[in-house]
Nucleic acid binder design. Structure first.
Lengths: 376, 376
DNA sequence: CTGAAAGCGCTTACAG
DNA sequence: CTGAAAGCGCTTACAG
């Protein structure tokens, strides 16, 4: 393995100068820089991250924590974040909680992050007080994605979940539905992020605004998965007097609902309409009406919000290219409400720097799974 | 930040002893170990990975390279691998090629891996000769997943793609189909892994065995995605005289095909049968007949094959627990053919240690998307 | 079983 | 703009 002093010797300079030249620091003459780069290339030199990190006091690594990488939203976010991080020269340390009860603590409270990363991104990660304490002790910059994950002092990139749910429910109301069920996240689930609470609130607000009573028998809790949606729907049908429409808290639940309804011999949307939230890759194939949320954009923006303050801390070696400008102009900064819904602005969480927090818009996508209720 | 000498001072021993005790080395007396552990806990000490890696000459990190983390197979593999690695105390450095033309080179041939990891896992990563040269220079242990990715000297965990395709095609033949189309991977795609070549071979072998001619107009190339399946099917229909059945090289393509057929007003399976390979999470919801392949198991086995030789090199600190035994006994080692198909054994690639290579079985899962052709 | 000391390969004030 | 030297926080022979 060639080391920095091999390069220094060949270029006829000190290792300090090699270090500076390779990182693109401005205090190196053009001639020297050229010689150093040529020597490094000739020797196929690559810096040792371990040594560089120890000496420099930075890890060049960002931890990304997701509940389940296999779910559409999280894999889409991670793909966008990975590209952003690598473009900026950062490594991505992936933590997948994977539904294991003890994993969240292991990641957040033990050596999972300690001295390992320069910054943290939590995606829809459920947090207890003890987790917040542990994160505080780490004293690292961070960002969260999803309204369900709030860390004091960290910006949050998200959609307006209450508004999205209100829009979904209103779509069903506008079609003439009155018996509208909601299937949502299970609060007993160790990995339940609180997003489902916001979405239920939107559902309830829309019903109330329409002058409809809240029927607890139409509100079923289950997990944010295909199976969860199937089980919730089966439970709903078991209760008798089925709803004419189901609003599922995410597309995967909605797909599970579609499956259960079909198995029960019910037609969609003639017998039961179904709407979700996400605009999953396969929503189109299934003809699922949904509230689209921009997953990749949330990842991209979160990465930028996280990296911007770190910029310049890391060497320019991996490419000093700025993150591509993909903002799209659709982001609303500062916490004002946006999106398909024109309801009241979301309440800002306590203490986070709203200036860097972002709420991205959602939009109703009507497909074949929703229609008016039967006339009878 | 507390350092190792803080712990040493409190425990009244040298830093060398702290280092040994914390890593669970056997050459420490029980009493000393206890004092050290107590001191470390009291000070909330966590080892500095950078320092440890520099001094120890190991990174404790494994690179995992996937084409697209958003695709079912890859996210499922990564989830299994992530759990395995973290259980063994390794960090997972994720590289997502993401369809970008230059990414593969950037990851494999530049500082993406150099001095950064102890081992490499390539999942369905297309490799050119120059990539192989670069990997050889890295001189690291590695493992690949998928028949499309073969690195000399590295074991490979995979299914028998030829057999899987043969079984899929034979299922359609057994139902009475004679005009069977195949939609498969695009060889022009920079990220095309050669898996689609194996699957096409199985398709052709099954047709030939049934005494049917190969009709090039029934063989359409496209990408391994939902959109790819849709486009390929549209192309197929455009050619006129549509097939009575479509064998798609993966479930995502099959789902795209389902979408295109529906849009064309064709019924499934009455007008056209559809079969894929994977048993994607949503295959059940869509009623898709498929050849199931064990994605998580392939990830788990690949992680084990990779970590086994490394065992003991890393400290026991992160938990000396062995990887859970989830082999299931279904794995066949040594290259003999298994699975739903009883055809000839797959040809072993040149030079890889077949002893550690594994071929996992696949199985036909019949759902609603396949049936006999119409009588007319 | 334990310790003193060298060394891992860089980066960073500091001085010039 | 450049270099000499200290130091980042560990691990590892080596010696006992």
């Amino acid at each position: 393995m060639t080391r920095i002093d091999d390069v220094a010797r060949l270029a006829g300079v000190s290792t300090a100068t090699v270090s500076r030249a390779l990182r693109g620091l401005p205090t190196v003459s053009a001639a020297t820089r050229h010689r150093v780069l040529a020597a490094a290339e000739h020797l196929e030199y690559a810096v040792s991250p371990s040594a560089s990190r120890l000496a420099g006091g930075r890890t060049g690594t960002v931890a990304v924590v997701v509940p389940r990488i296999t779910r559409w939203f999280f894999s889409t976010v991670v793909e966008a974040v990975e590209e952003s991080l690598h473009q900026s020269g950062y490594d991505l340390l992936l933590h997948n909680l994977g539904g294991r009860r003890q994993m969240r603590q292991r990641v957040l409270q033990t050596a999972g992050l300690h001295k390992r990363v320069d910054a943290i991104m939590l995606v829809a990660t459920p947090l207890r007080v003890s987790d917040l304490t542990a994160l505080g002790r780490l004293d690292l910059p961070g960002v969260t994605i999803s309204s369900g994950t709030v860390v004091p002092g960290w910006p949050c990139v998200r959609i307006d979940d209450v508004a999205a749910a209100r829009t979904a429910t209103r779509h069903l109301l506008d079609l003439g539905h009155r018996r509208i069920a909601h299937i949502s996240g299970d609060p007993d689930d160790e990995l339940a992020f609180t997003t489902h609470l916001d979405r239920r609130r939107g559902y309830q607000e829309a019903l109330r605004a329409a002058g409809l009573p809240l029927d607890p028998s139409l509100d079923v809790e289950s997990q944010f998965t295909i199976d969860g949606g199937t089980r919730a729907t089966e439970e709903l049908l078991r209760r008798g007097d089925p709803p004419t429409a189901i609003f599922a808290a995410c597309d995967e639940m909605a797909m599970g609902a579609v499956s259960a309804l079909r198995d029960a011999g019910l037609r969609i949307p003639q017998d039961v309409s179904v709407i979700g939230i996400d605009d999953h890759d396969l929503a189109g194939v299934l003809g699922l009406t949904t509230i689209a949320q921009p997953a990749a954009e949330q990842g991209l923006l979160a990465a930028r919000v996280l990296l911007d303050p770190l910029r310049g801390l890391l060497d320019a070696q991996a490419g000093s290219a700025a993150v591509a400008t993909t903002d799209g102009g659709s982001a609303t900064r500062g916490g004002s409400a946006t999106g398909a819904d024109a309801g009241p602005p979301p309440v800002a969480g306590g203490g986070e720097p709203a200036g860097r927090s972002v709420i991205l818009p959602t939009r109703l996508v009507v497909r074949a799974s929703t229609g008016p209720p039967r006339a009878d």
